Each structure stands twice: as C-alpha cells, then as structure tokens.
Amino acid sequence: MTTLAAIAQSGLQAAQLRLDSSAHNVANLNTPGFRRQTVDQQAAPAPGGVQARVAAPAAATGVALEAEAVEQISATYAFQANLLVLRRADEMAGALLDVRA
C-alpha cells in the first residue's frame, strides 16, 4: 500500500470512529447520567496520517443534539475527502502505469 493510501485509510478510519461515537451519543441522549463520548485525533508518526481513539467520557453529563448533528456532518465530509484522495491516488497510479507500459 502506498503512503498516500495509508494516510487516506487512517483518515477514513478516524471519520468512521467519529460517526460511531456521535451515533452512540445520540442513541443514549435520554439515558440518565450518560456522559458524552468524544474522539481524540492526533497526527500519526511516519508514514503519516491520523490516529484516533475514543476519549474518556466528558465530565459533564448530557448530550447536545445540535452539536452531534454538526459532528456527524463534519465526519461525513472528512470521510468523503479521504475517499476522494484514494480515488485520485488510484487514478494517478493507473496513469503512471499507462505511461510506463
């Protein structure tokens, strides 16, 4: 797998984790004493990309539905952007093979 594909794949996984965590928060919106999950992301060492993990539940209880909607939209855009990177990498590899062949 190329470095570009590995970076995009890590971005896809991080976006999926954000969507999963937000869905979990919405599903437990009315659960008494529920603490909202968040996802921490940081730059990954070589070859690059992003590392994501579910953080410890926030100290404050409750979930803001509008914040979760924004989080889901943001994660969806991140997912689409990383998918586009994978498509372009595939196109570039195909073009390179066409030139070399």
Rank of each mutant, 00 (worst) to 15 (best):
Q51R: 13
N82G: 11
M92S: 15
A27G: 11
G49A: 12
V26P: 05
D40E: 14
T3G: 04
T61R: 03
L97G: 11
V50S: 09
E68M: 05
D98F: 06
L29Y: 09
A95R: 15
E91G: 12
L12K: 08
R88I: 02
I73K: 09
P45S: 06
T31K: 05
V70A: 07
G33I: 02
A43E: 13
G33K: 00
N28Y: 02
T31E: 00
P47Y: 15
L12F: 13
A46S: 13
A78G: 14
R100M: 12
S21R: 09
T3I: 15
A81S: 13
V54Y: 09
E68I: 00
Q72E: 04
E91P: 04
Q13Y: 12
Q16W: 07
M92L: 13
Q80P: 04
L29T: 04
V39D: 03
A75D: 06
Q51M: 08
A58D: 05
A15V: 07
A44L: 10
S22M: 02
F34A: 03
A101V: 07
V99W: 10
Q13V: 13
V70Y: 00
A44F: 11
R35M: 02
A14P: 06
L29F: 13
R100P: 09
V26Y: 01
A52R: 10
E71T: 01
D98I: 00
